[in-house]
């Protein structure tokens, strides 16, 4: 009995960067499921995986890394990718199939679950009981945990694992990470919804935010669309990115790709410096995995302040310039 993990590269265009952090987390999580072996499947990367990808797989104790040689899979096509994942599950005799609760991860896994008519709990955070296997998953933006069964012994048990639910840890002993090719007969229907081209976004995209070690967050307390100069200056000084709450994007003050939260990006930086953000469920869903949170807020009772490690009580537009002055 094995666990198959759908893994994603850190950078779809550069396999030299290895696996994404979330994929390494999911490989770690896989070892808490009742399987003897952990296998992985990487789709969209034509040809042999890079040494960086294999190194992450070995470190995580992976037995077999399934890849697909079909050039038509290079551009993202969720249903076609799911065919490969399904075939890899079949080939490796997987009892469980899991992947990251990322946009692509959830989508590909949902196609496998739909094709097999099996359930798919999303954003699982922990195994809470082993026999029968029960897990908890995030609902209501992570404010509530729902307990569900995972797998009923009949058929493949499919689930996605919430980003940053566990920290990546090396397996007790490294795995061989044998590379095996999966070959599937793709149909036109499998490829009907495929990326035809990738466009760079003017002004950046979500990857600047999700990859940043420091994020300076800004909420309603900023005051208006022309009040971001100090926030941007601080982010630049700390070598980080700007992230905003939903109210800021829905007011049209900043673009959606900067949104942190339930309907934006999930981040896990070393430092999240939340300025003028109250910390509603919708926002906390995206920032709660930050290693250290510092809040700057006029309201000492705001959830963002009480949940933070450090706080400054005051107007962000007074505090940030003073911090920049101190740093100059």
């Amino acid at each position: 009995m094995s666990v198959l993990v759908l893994v994603e590269p850190e950078d779809l265009d550069d396999l030299g960067a290895g696996l994404s952090v979330v994929s390494q987390e999911v490989l770690t999580f896989a070892r808490s499921l009742p399987g003897d072996e952990v296998d992985a499947v990487l789709v969209g990367a034509v040809g042999q995986p890079t040494e960086a990808v294999l190194a992450h797989c070995r470190e995580q104790g992976v037995r077999t890394l399934h890849v697909s040689p079909d050039a038509r899979l290079e551009r993202y096509a969720a249903r076609a990718w799911a065919r490969v994942v399904d075939a890899a599950a079949e080939a490796g005799g997987a009892a469980y199939l899991i992947g990251g609760g990322t946009p692509h991860g959830n989508e590909v896994l949902a196609h496998v679950a739909a094709a097999r008519s099996v359930p798919m709990p999303c954003n699982v955070v922990a195994v809470v009981q082993s026999e029968p296997l029960e897990v908890e998953r995030q609902v209501v933006g992570g404010a509530v945990l729902e307990r569900v069964a995972l797998g009923d012994g009949a058929g493949l048990a499919v689930a996605s694992v919430a980003g940053h639910a566990v920290a990546p840890q090396a397996a007790p002993s490294p795995g061989p990470a044998h590379v095996a090719e999966v070959d599937v007969e793709l149909t036109d229907a499998d490829l009907a919804a495929q990326v035809v081209r990738i466009e760079a976004r003017e002004g950046g995209d979500t990857s600047a935010l999700t990859g940043a070690n420091v994020v300076v967050g800004a909420g309603r307390g900023v005051g208006g669309p022309d009040q971001f100069d100090d926030v941007e200056a601080l982010a630049a000084r700390l070598g980080g990115a700007v992230g905003v709450s939903r109210v800021v994007t829905s007011l049209g003050w900043r673009p959606h790709h900067e949104q942190v939260g339930q309907t934006g990006s999930r981040i896990a930086p070393d430092l999240y410096l939340a300025c003028g953000i109250s910390g509603a469920i919708q926002h906390w869903a995206g920032c709660s995995s930050s290693k250290t949170i510092i809040a700057i807020n006029t309201d000492g009772e705001a959830p963002m302040v009480t949940k933070a490690r450090y706080a400054v009580i005051g107007d962000m537009h007074e505090v940030i310039p003073a911090v920049l002055e101190e740093l100059s």
């Binding site: 009480t306 005051g314 505090v319």
Partner: peptide, 14 residues
């Protein structure tokens, strides 16, 4: 939470 101070006077501690 450790409150570092109020307003701009908290900047050095921050």
């Amino acid at each position: 939470v450790e409150v570092l101070g109020e307003g701009k006077t908290a900047a050095p501690r921050l």
